[in-house]
């Protein structure tokens, strides 16, 4: 997973700067190093947005090719990775548009404005709740849960919390204001927390906390993995 890096006060140039310079000078091997470094992250981001494996594979290819072709346009004001992520996000949204012909696809879709409600009837979680599930089962729970988030929340959560972009980088990548990123991040985190509670809540008298066994309902219990609409 990506590590959050401080964006302010960086005195040493990012190691990608030298690689990008080498690519510009015609060194394809340097681009090979950049692809290896970031292909997993770009695949994850594309998969989160398109929710389709084939599309995500295509996006990985297209995004890296486009970045290679447009490297002259990369100004160096942002990190190479952030610039690459922006290309991948745009390519992913284009793929979605192709799949949903005639329908608008944007990072604003499905965003509602129910600001500031305080969750109630909270169930605490078991200690280390993920230990109650096998790796594959846990991954499926996490996938289903995040897939149920509105697109505009999901992208912000993935870039900010999973891939480790700063708030400023996320805003720049998605063309959103910083307050918009902050607002979406809070709501994404709270919605995910609430949805995961169905699986991870502390169950009296049992080490296990599986949702099929009379899971307590929290506020707004819409279906895990259900439609975004």
């Amino acid at each position: 997973m990506a590590i959050i890096q401080p964006i302010a006060g960086e005195l040493e140039p990012h190691p990608d700067v030298a690689l990008v310079e080498r690519v510009r000078a015609g060194d394809v091997a340097a681009y090979d190093a950049l692809v290896r470094k970031y292909e997993r992250q770009i695949f994850r981001i594309s998969q989160h947005i398109t929710q389709n494996r084939e599309d995500a594979e295509d996006v990985v290819q297209d995004a890296f090719l486009k970045a290679y072709e447009k490297l002259d346009q990369f100004q160096g004001n942002s990190k190479f990775y952030t610039w690459l992520v922006r290309i991948a996000v745009n390519e992913s949204l284009m793929r979605l548009r192709k799949r949903r012909t005639g329908k608008m696809v944007s990072i604003d879709e499905d965003i509602t404005t129910d600001e500031g409600s305080v969750p109630r009837d909270l169930a605490d979680w078991a200690p280390d709740p993920e230990q109650n599930y096998g790796q594959a089962e846990l991954a499926e729970i996490l996938r289903k849960t995040i897939q149920g988030l509105p697109q505009g929340f999901r992208i912000v959560f993935v870039l900010r919390d999973v891939e480790g972009l700063s708030t400023e980088e996320t805003a720049e990548t998605l063309g959103l204001s910083i307050p918009a990123v902050k607002s979406r991040l809070l709501r994404a985190r709270l919605q995910l927390r609430e949805r995961l509670s169905r699986y991870f809540h502390r169950k009296k008298g049992s080490r296990h906390a599986k949702p099929r066994e009379a899971a307590p309902r929290e506020t707004n219990p819409d279906g895990i993995g259900g439609s975004e609409k």
């Binding site: 997973m1 990985v60 996490l142």
Partner: peptide
């Protein structure tokens, strides 16, 4: 506590892994 745990769980679990074979082919 549970929101912090939510973030931690998503950060530490690879839910869309790129298998080595596919990675090589794409690369």
């Amino acid at each position: 506590n549970t929101t912090r745990k939510t973030i931690e769980i998503y950060r530490s679990h690879e839910i869309y892994d790129l298998p080595a074979g596919l990675r090589d082919r794409l690369h």
